[in-house]
Write a protein that binds this DNA or RNA. Structure first.
Lengths: 323, 323
DNA sequence: ATAGATGCAAACCCTTTGCACATTA
DNA sequence: TAATGTGCAAAGGGTTTGCATCTAT
């Protein structure tokens, strides 16, 4: 886990020279939470003590944006705001026109659809802006705006854990079923081993989840940050359904498993890479790696099965070999 | 179909007074295609002849926005652009950073996910901004930018027709199957009648589609404007799958039909209402109405079936009545 | 010594406004 | 004639920039 200073160092472009004022501005900026306009940052800097010129602050903001430390956010009210990227994944916004508060979210489903749209146009996307304007819960009810009681990072870690757990659960169900179903003893063993691994990893994740809740008791009552409807049943859920069909043999089960592991690997890798340094990123990338290993194991197993069923005396599953 | 002038008249707010200059600006604005900045509109107006002050143009743009004739579009480059709403549904944008061209699209899937997100936060949405920045097809290939050869309206009508046709096809499959499956003669008749209606309407829609293609031969080669993955198999596709399961009786089939018709009605109504005056809107609203009628017919039928199965000598389907 | 950072004030860009004048109902 | 629209120029706000002055390497 990077400290704010480390975060800045990893982003500092080569060739410039250090300056105390710039460091001070960056430092103050990273301590802020919401979306600051340049002017707001000026006020904060002035209040924090230093007398730094407006121009320097504008220039430093630009420097941070180029370095990837800050992101421009445009809410369409004439002034540009900035949010820092430290432990803060890219996201979309809900904006309350009444209290001006903003709420952040991420949706893998929406992103997947956007990818479809771009593919249909052969458009190569580099950045997406998605803002929903309206009125927030509290304002509709006439209540005062309530600042979030839990850091966003924790909510995000919670959601990442939830997807991971759902996926492990569906994976466990898949391999348990596949173990029962398998006829080839070697395949059975592989499935059993994977089921065992999923079980272990599942309990690790659940422990991690419990620890998170213990540390931040309010985290469970927070609304979701990461939306992943299509993955909410776990990325193996479809595979489990397929196993239920008639006539699924070892080979077919392996194929389904391979597909699920690949999808799962891609999903977690994609989101893990897209995230900035954070607890959520680590969970996703660890997971992606695990899925890749499973994927490779299954592929090896599949090849071995094919080889065995082709060369030695057949064991009654010839038909598929010709295709 | 409204003419531009009629469109303006339906939007003109009460209480103001007419002015030749304003009418002229509005008229010129409605003839434009893309997204104009105030300054660009000034140049066009100046070129078109009239010498109208910048301030008047700014004020007229504001007037058009308030009247719902123009919509603000902010691409985050410091100047606000405007697009007119005449035969132009609200949409999202792909923006090419290289050639500055913009491409428009609509996605019912993304909108559905956004509704989920808002619901989870109890956020009441009033407006959504969705822009994807990147590089377009032509710019990636090093080709000159190609303006669209078919008016957007036609592409939209094409896509609306496609959803409608897919839905009719799945509806036809549903009712054909349900007719075969039904045991109650009266229910059978209702399903058969609906199958017949779907068939007729399907051929009407297909004719309409062919006419559209005949009028605008290029329309089929255009990339999609309206994305509707979840509805692309037709809104009855899920219902057809359900009919395939074991133990589906008349009552169950009616229930599934009712659900599909209701969903379908809602889908088309929602999109129809959201659209501005256009061919697409008409298709959607006609369709929504049709689905509502089917829905009501099925509900009546369901009630009648329940009444008959409860009061007179039973016909072997008691079990469900108790629940 | 020299490229880079800072401060100040002026310039910039887009947009809105105050006020006198013109137009419409 | 009374309310509304127009023109002009000036003001407004957020942001960038030219230039002289510092400061880190």
């Amino acid at each position: 886990m990077l400290s704010p200073d480390q975060f800045v160092e990893t982003h500092r472009p080569a060739g410039g020279r250090r300056s105390g004022k710039r460091d001070f501005i960056v430092h103050v900026f990273l301590r802020q939470n919401g979306h600051l306009s340049a002017d707001e940052l000026v006020s904060i800097i002035r209040a924090e003590d230093a007398r730094i010129s407006r121009a320097t602050i504008y220039r430093t903001i630009q420097w941070m944006v180029e370095a990837g430390i800050a992101r421009r956010v445009d809410f369409g009210d004439g002034k540009i705001r900035f949010e820092h990227a430290y432990r803060h994944p890219r996201h979309f916004h809900l904006l309350c026109k009444n209290c001006q508060q903003s709420f952040e979210f991420l949706s893998s489903d929406i992103e997947a659809h956007l990818e479809d749209v771009c593919a249909a146009r052969r458009f190569s996307a580099s950045q997406t802006v998605l803002q929903v304007y309206g009125m927030c819960d509290a304002c509709q009810a006439g209540l005062p705006p309530a600042p979030p009681s839990v850091p966003l990072e924790m909510v995000f870690a919670r959601d990442a854990l939830r997807v991971a757990i759902a996926t492990e659960q569906s994976g466990l169900a898949f391999y348990t079923r596949a173990t029962k179903l398998a006829r080839d003893p070697r395949g059975k063993k592989v499935f059993a081993r994977l089921a065992e691994e999923e079980k272990e990893h599942l309990s690790t994740l659940q422990t991690r989840y419990r620890e998170l809740v213990a540390q931040h008791p309010d985290v469970e009552s927070q609304p979701p940050f990461l939306f992943f409807k299509s993955a909410s049943r776990g990325l193996f859920a479809g595979g489990v359904d397929e196993l239920a069909a008639d006539g699924v043999d070892d080979r077919e089960a392996l194929r389904i498993g391979i597909r699920c592991e690949r999808e799962s690997h891609r999903f977690f890798k994609k989101y893990g890479e897209r995230l900035d340094e954070s607890e959520g990123k680590r969970i996703f990338l660890e997971f992606a790696d695990e899925e890749r290993q499973h994927f490779e194991l299954l592929v090896r197993e599949f090849r071995s099965l094919v080889a065995r069923s082709r060369v030695p005396p057949a064991r009654g599953k010839r038909r598929a070999a010709g295709r």
